[in-house]
Design a binder for these strands. Sequence first.
DNA 1: CTGAAAGCGCTAACAC
DNA 2: GTGTTAGCGCTTTCAG
Lengths: 336, 336
Amino acid sequence: MTVTIKDVARKAGVSSATVSRVLTGKPHVRNTLIDRVMKAVEELHYRPSRVARSLREQKSHIIGLIISDIMNPFFTSLVRAVEDFASQEGYTVFLCNSDENVEKEEQYISVLAGENIAGLLITPAKEQCCSCKALIEEGIPVVTFDRRIANAEVDTVMVDNVMGAYQAVNHLIAVGHERIAAVTASEDRTTGRERLEGYRKALKSSHLPLDEDLIFTGAPKKEAGRELARKIMQLPFRPTAIFCGNNLLTMGVWGYLQEAECRIPEDCALVSFDDLDWYTLTKPTITAVRQPVYELGKTAAELLFERIKGKTYPVKDILLEPKLIVRESSGRSIHH
Amino acid sequence: MTVTIKDVARKAGVSSATVSRVLTGKPHVRNTLIDRVMKAVEELHYRPSRVARSLREQKSHIIGLIISDIMNPFFTSLVRAVEDFASQEGYTVFLCNSDENVEKEEQYISVLAGENIAGLLITPAKEQCCSCKALIEEGIPVVTFDRRIANAEVDTVMVDNVMGAYQAVNHLIAVGHERIAAVTASEDRTTGRERLEGYRKALKSSHLPLDEDLIFTGAPKKEAGRELARKIMQLPFRPTAIFCGNNLLTMGVWGYLQEAECRIPEDCALVSFDDLDWYTLTKPTITAVRQPVYELGKTAAELLFERIKGKTYPVKDILLEPKLIVRESSGRSIHH
DNA sequence: CTGAAAGCGCTAACAC
DNA sequence: GTGTTAGCGCTTTCAG
């Protein structure tokens, strides 16, 4: 049914070994034979089986990409970057969506291992990612990005969350806020914890009191953002500003504030971690910490391919710098 | 190095055939042996090679998913739906991003074929998708969704674009607009053409003149939207409303209108095809035609799996109904 | 320079 | 019920 290397060999009047040599660009083949083989390939519409090749070579040209939430535009950009880089290297991407779910993640890692993947790129759902460690032990290159895993020797590419959050909160302080709430992902994710750390650090460096009751955490989801905003608005002594720890939370918070007819930034200012296109389309526009998303994906992919190609330098831990984009939702400085 | 079925067989004191039978759930194996095999599997951390299995069975448990723009939230939701359904069926998804680029698309189809995919789900970049037809001829199930391809016997799942656009424009007419511009994807994409058809149909059914100068087409990208909005605003005799053919175009148009300080809906009303979360967060909120995105992905996946399982009914062409969500950007009825 | 043959890990006939 | 064996399509020694 399907045309194999043997069919090509027969048609070209050579052995399958020669066909293979031609197709994989090996040297020492006569030009006339090359031509005959290529002609047969054309005529038969032959396409080599990547599966057979993968079995024989014990290694595929697939890289695995497990991300934790494909609906989140932040991760989408990441996927885009990885895909670009991989296809440029002649690899294809096996995309999996763990949905922030550890079981699904393990399941996928197992499948990917069975597919002989050349390497894995992952934004781990939780800090404990054991199956991931199993891969590493088997010698399959792994790079985690955006998030860290605990107790493992893995290359990691991260955005400097502490610094980003610090910048955001510092900006709020600079324009006169002293009572600032934080809405972040719960602390079992490194991103949530680190951003909270930046928040605390900013308050501290301005000698502002840290009120634990102003820290609100939940799942990184829109619904959680709404709910936490509701809690904030019910506070007897309301904060004058909110620091939102990611784009989904921002969306929920923003929606709630609008419905509650809270004027932004007069009644409550807001800064978001993560910058999205539509932040420039709201009224007011939304001040945000922009992460170098594309670079994050690209760097992780680069690192992975170096490992795939056999580089053996010590484990790398790369930190990328985010940047505060000041817009309207954080308010004007009240000092001027 | 890696542990194979033979290692398990040796450890369990059985043949590899028995191990295979146990693992694939075949009948006629003694319970004691099943236990011994499972124990060996556990102890050795054995994971079957999906590659070897795929080669042997001449069919993998992978389905290919080629979408035309992974950065577009509309497609992201689609991916999510497909992924959900596939994983539930025990399949994994090979995600490829054609980037609206026909060469990339062909390239991917070729790779996927080499991976022995069980089936392909695709939102074709252009109406002519020849490689896709090649797959169909090889007997690999294909379902196109969101867009159609020309001259092929393929299962297709679409949203009723004509009807959606008709609803949108009709609504604008109902609230009093008579001069309505259309900003859509260029007509070499079925979505663009069909939505334009709905636009024309709505004007016609209300006996409104069709002014071809009010039809603006371009790539389905934010930048194109901006540019086309600029052109519209420069028109000597401006329209009072704009119908936007997809979410990226809406984004560009909206951004331009805001910067041009055009009051929405007073100076210019707007309705978007495609509904996004953030449409409720702008001021005014954005009236939009909501597509049943998740259902679109799910239906396509269902259809594909039926084919994979061997169903052979005639080619299906499923049309899903969109729904107009009236918000503020289209303005109040001036009749009341 | 080219061909024959082995074998990657697995499943399915076919024996027993 | 269970083991033996062939072979999926390819690459790669090893001969020649």
